[in-house]
Design a protein around this nucleic acid. Sequence first.
DNA 1: TCCATAATTCAACGATTATCGAAATATCGA
DNA 2: TCGATATTTCGATAATCGTTGAATTATGGA
Lengths: 113, 113
Amino acid sequence: MEISDAVAALAALAQDSRLEAYRLLVKAGPDGMPAGEVASALKLPPNTLTFHFDRLRNAGLITVRREGRSMIYAARFDTMNALLGYLTENCCGGAPEKCFPARKKSAREKADV
Amino acid sequence: MEISDAVAALAALAQDSRLEAYRLLVKAGPDGMPAGEVASALKLPPNTLTFHFDRLRNAGLITVRREGRSMIYAARFDTMNALLGYLTENCCGGAPEKCFPARKKSAREKADV
DNA sequence: TCCATAATTCAACGATTATCGAAATATCGA
DNA sequence: TCGATATTTCGATAATCGTTGAATTATGGA
């Protein structure tokens, strides 16, 4: 993943409604869920949601397919993977130990920081 | 890490100059490096860089200290850690296997996608 | 064919962002 | 104290962003 792709993905996720929408799609799994369901779950007007989906899609984070009258959106796990890979590699500058061991302590994070 | 903190961190990293500045600080390690060095490395005017550093700092991703005439900026690894934790937890919806095993194949990622 | 449903496109808007020049502040050394 | 260096603050500007109402497109069923 190039820096420009990383910036695009980060920007796509860097907004409340979009991050929530993305999380919903992740929960929904590979089969995804219809736009309307996301809209009602997040209480967003459909056109606003379309705008956000467009951004996620341009960043390669989700896909769409039509199914009858519904548009089914689904998370692209490979892209999130690549983003995580980019961040860990570039966050740790050749020393992944700096970032990763700490990842295991998620339960007691607050206590340590 | 709360969703609002995640959005703040993502937004702070979602910009070319800032992501590059952050990567430089990561490379520099815990001792950090002076603003001027970052400015000349990225060819950014000092006031522009201050603007970007402010955003990274507000998101908790970097720290500053004065050392003589210089301001030394340093990456906060704990925050990047928390962000990675948030993304992996919320990207995988209770099934981290979906995201993590793939992380090991970084060399042949392009071939698979 | 006509209607209802699902979603997108379009145009407009206020808010935020990134950038820059100019001026101000802080520190050091002479 | 004065001048040079390092950085920040301030004000302005163009560009992008998030949101909305209204109109449009696509599909399925009666």
